[in-house]
Structures are given as structure tokens and as C-alpha cells.
Design a binder for these strands. Structure first.
Length: 156
DNA sequence: GCCAACGTTGGC
DNA sequence: GCCAACGTTGGC
């Protein structure tokens, strides 16, 4: 299957693009997804090597802040088993894990393309993340949108 | 902190 | 299976 593209939201207070780039191998486990649709995107559709728009959410300047790639196969999210974690899920068990993750490798910090800029760009109006009421932390990005955004970011 | 929008839960 | 109540997301 061809390379696909995704937008993945992270709260910078939890894991910013700088945090990801500073991690060993610039790779971080994408913990904390607790939404079935987002989980299913990771489990069923993502492939190693897919492109990722790294997005900061729940912060002063939400928007795209970097580029990344899907860096691992799917595996259980260990935070669901940790009673001390805010992501603990008492209904999940190691023999039948409910929540899954992939590793995401940060490739590059870019300038911010903030939400206002995204919304002001007609070419991007159809992006899933911009749709009314969209709350999914992982959304697919079309190749056209990926190309438009990466060109704008990388200036080629 | 507010609140719109959406997802999940659980009684029936 | 319906749907009201509740919880969460996330921009502002």
C-alpha cells in the first residue's frame, strides 16, 4: 500500500515537538489515545513510514509544528495498565489490551502553522482536523494536503 | 473558566 | 436498541 499521511495531536505540556526530537532516536510512544476511532486508524490503517504532521493542541498556539513518521508496528499502550497513570483503564487487561500505540519519530521542527493560518487557507478547508466539531487526536491527511503543507513548510 | 460538540455509559 | 446523562476535547 502507498504511503499515507496523518495529523497527530499532542499536548506540548505532555510531549512537544522539542520533547520528541530530544527523545532517544527522536522516537516517542504515542501514549494516551483513548478513542476507538483514533485507535483503529493506528491499528488498521497506519503503516511504518507514513508521514505525520505533528500538531500541538490544548495550548496557547495550537497548530502544526513539525514533521514526523510512523516508526513502529502496533502494540499495547502500557499506560492503560498503570494505576498511577492518568491513562489507566481498569477495564483493560494485559491479556486483552484495549488501547494500542505506535512509536512516532520526529523528523523536523518547522515553523508554526497555527490554526488561524490553517483556517485561512482555502486549499486546506477540507482537512478533517478543521471540520466542525472535529476532536479526533489522529486524523488522516490527503496527499494533496500533505504536499501543500510540506511545500509551504519546507519552501520548495 | 466557558462552552460547543461529540463520545461513552448504562438504565430501561 | 434507544436515549438521557455524563465525561472529554480543545479552542477561545
Amino acid at each position: 500500500m502507498n504511503t499515507q499521511y496523518w495529523l497527530m495531536k499532542s499536548e506540548p505540556e505532555e510531549c512537544s515537538i522539542d520533547d520528541a526530537l530530544a527523545a532517544p532516536g527522536a522516537s516517542v510512544p504515542w501514549t494516551g489515545v483513548r478513542n476507538y476511532q483514533a485507535r483503529n486508524f493506528m491499528r488498521d490503517a497506519m503503516q511504518v513510514g507514513d508521514g505525520v504532521l505533528f500538531y500541538h493542541s490544548s495550548c496557547a498556539e495550537p497548530g502544526i509544528v513539525g514533521l514526523a513518521r510512523v516508526a513502529s508496528e502496533i502494540r499495547p499502550d502500557p499506560t492503560q495498565f498503570d494505576p498511577a497513570s492518568p491513562y489507566f483503564d481498569p477495564k483493560s487487561s494485559p491479556d486483552k489490551p484495549r488501547w494500542l500505540l505506535r512509536d512516532v519519530q520526529a523528523l523536523k521542527k518547522t515553523r508554526l502553522i497555527g490554526l488561524p493560518e490553517l483556517r485561512a487557507t482555502p486549499e486546506l478547508a477540507e482537512m478533517v482536523v478543521l471540520q466542525r466539531g472535529s476532536r479526533l487526536s489522529i486524523t488522516p491527511v490527503s496527499e494533496a494536503h500533505w504536499t501543500f503543507i510540506t511545500r509551504r513548510l519546507l519552501g520548495d
